[in-house]
Nucleic acid binder design. Structure first.
Lengths: 142, 142
DNA sequence: TAATAAATAAAAACGATTGTTAATTAGATA
DNA sequence: TATCTAATTAACAATCGTTTTTATTTATTA
């Protein structure tokens, strides 16, 4: 996601309006590396803007996705998560607490499709999901 | 997934019953590399066993998952898919038609977490999702 | 073959998401 | 600055995939 300022300009130039609700959503997402679900975003916005509706969150997230400002993905879960970092990167997920962490490392020189598959698919990119246990969950229960 | 014969023995040894509905589901899944959704399985079973209910499909797939006989996963889609091949492997998905193909290649020597992340996560495995366009979808429209 | 625990079909319930609507409002323009 | 209008909102209903519930049926085994 770009800065809020740039995003604001971009939206306005397309005839879209910058409402206080949208601004709150942008602020919640800005530099957010927690991979929130729509509900997470809703709860955080609601704290500072209690009358906001869930619909608005969904609609705005969809708008941001269409504009390529956030990436939508699903992991081990039946709800979608949103990531304002749209640069190519990978993820580690804790099988226990489901916490997701970004992995910024370029594996592209090592990860390519085997020859036979290359004939059938033209690959535009790939995503690696690491599964594991985070340090907190690994600790013995007190 | 093991052979139907072995699977049958395994289930019975655990006090579970082998019903005709289950056998049909096993047959639909056996050697199936199409990554079917519950609905796909339902439709195929229904052809030969028209009175089967959706509930039975869901329950049986869950049972198979608990037993480690199928792997459940989600890609770019809001429904779950099932894979009777539980060996570690990766996938290519066509962004256009959503067709999924298996990728059997061992990337494990090249794909490891960066050092700083290794301190926080103990990784048990990883999955690579390649995105691309399949040959059929790449062809110009007639 | 009868007993019984497990599995079934059908229906209702469920949670996440999307569509609809009437009312409100941001932001351009007079 | 006030007015106007299309975009956005909140509230609600609807939908979709999946799960739960319940009463009935059935696979297994004694």
């Amino acid at each position: 996601m770009e800065t809020i300022e740039k995003l604001t300009k971009k939206l306005r130039s397309q005839g879209m309006k910058i409402t206080p609700q949208r601004l709150m959503i942008f602020r919640v997402l800005e530099n957010n590396t927690s991979h929130p679900s729509a509900e997470n975003v809703y709860k955080r916005v609601k704290r500072i803007y209690p009358s906001v509706s869930f619909t608005t969150i969904y609609k705005t997230l969809e708008t941001l996705r269409e504009l390529g400002e956030v990436r939508e993905f699903v992991i081990d879960d039946d709800r979608k998560h949103y990531d304002p970092n749209t640069n190519l990167h990978h993820h580690v997920i804790c099988s226990s607490c489901k916490k997701i962490l970004d992995v910024f490392e370029d594996f592209s020189s090592h990860v390519t499709l085997p020859e036979p598959v290359k004939k059938d698919y033209t690959v535009s990119g790939f995503q690696i999901f690491f599964h594991g246990i985070c340090r907190d969950c690994k600790l013995p229960v007190a």
